[in-house]
Design a protein around this nucleic acid. Structure first.
Lengths: 200, 200
DNA sequence: ACAGGCATTGCGGATGACCACACTGGTCAC
DNA sequence: GTGACCAGTGTGGTCATCCGCAATGCCTGT
């Protein structure tokens, strides 16, 4: 798992080149795009990294690309660059989850530091998302009965009560319980509770 | 528990009065302050509500008041008002946790809506903080041994193993276990795990 | 038709959790 | 010094959990 690259989207070739050189010189992988559309072509749910996005571009603007990516489920951190941004635009972008909003001219080193932070953040987010997905998958693999038993185990009910509750025998509850513990990859009810509590 | 008031800090009397009237007409409790210093006098850790803060004021500026409050542990949501803010100022304020950053002239209704949202948010935050404090208090009431046993219970260890671990008898572990369950207000290990997992 | 997964149940035993009762010893505060 | 609190221990019993072994009925896909 290497940490992702920085994706620079700007229709000004001079800026693309300058930024690409800047990041490369600091050891950050870079890919550049001439337009929002070009990045959308490249993007897939597996794309990992950080976006540096010019606001004002021909065609789709940076803000529009940002919205589009969010709609498509992208969770990449986005740093906006702008020559002459206004306050409402900056506020709206940040409130929608942009990572930062930087006016040109900016300090090169600061930008690289921001990107490096964003890359690290994105990597941990990606891990968390993977954990959540794995948990969801395991949850989905449970049968109806197993889910019903799990709910009641998490509610602290005794097997006897659960059995009564579901109109089945204690022995059957035990079987379901063992199965769901197996599927969820836990050995005790305590572990199960922790697993289910952290992510929600 | 009523939801808190909106605290308006602005050195322009006309604006204070206009905002006070605006909020009152929408049923929101209002208090106004002529300066950042005046609000600091009034503030205490129990102060509940939402701040509407002019940036440019004689004496301490809105941004300085914001920083000062954060240092003192205040978690009040803050909405900044500014006549001529610049982008870096807005970005910095939002990244430091300001709720919003609004340029004059602004839409009255939008501001009230923002404040109402902020008040609701603050109320739930306050509840969460109270729960966390109560949990911390209960945790602090545990004796050393009880904490040691709790850790190991949460690690899914059996009483036998815990006993071995701590060099004491199973019986003693059972006693500590019962005591800590009592103090933490839970009846089962599962409840304990849920209690400890949600807040961390 | 047959394999495989799911839900169900029974029996019995090993192990663990929980509890009431009883007792020792140390520290700390009033 | 006496009471409150903490830590530690024992006996004995009840209830719960966990497992292996064995079996039945249903449904689905090959």
């Amino acid at each position: 798992m290497s940490t992702g690259a920085v994706y620079i989207v700007d229709d000004d070739e001079a800026i693309r080149d300058a930024l690409a050189w800047l990041f490369q010189s600091r050891g950050v992988d870079v890919e550049t795009f001439v337009s929002a559309e070009a990045f959308l072509d490249k993007w897939s749910p597996g794309t990992s990294g950080c976006l540096v996005l010019d606001i004002r571009m021909a065609g789709m603007t940076g803000l529009e690309l940002f919205d589009r990516l969010r709609e498509m489920g992208a969770r990449l951190p986005v740093i906006f660059l702008t020559g002459h941004g206004d306050v409402p635009m900056a506020v709206s972008a940040l409130k929608k989850g942009a990572r930062d909003f930087v006016e040109k001219p900016f300090n090169d080193n600061d930008l690289v530091d921001m990107v490096i932070d964003a890359l690290a953040w994105e990597a941990t987010q990606r891990e968390n998302a993977a954990d959540a997905a794995s948990l969801a998958a395991r949850l989905a693999s449970l049968t109806l009965r197993e889910r019903q038993v799990m709910e009641r185990v998490l509610a602290g009910k005794l097997n006897k009560v659960i059995a009564d509750d579901l109109g089945i025998t204690m022995r059957t509850v035990e079987v379901h319980r063992a199965h769901l513990f197996e599927k969820m990859g836990v050995k005790t009810a305590v572990e199960l509770a922790q697993l289910m509590s952290t992510r929600r």
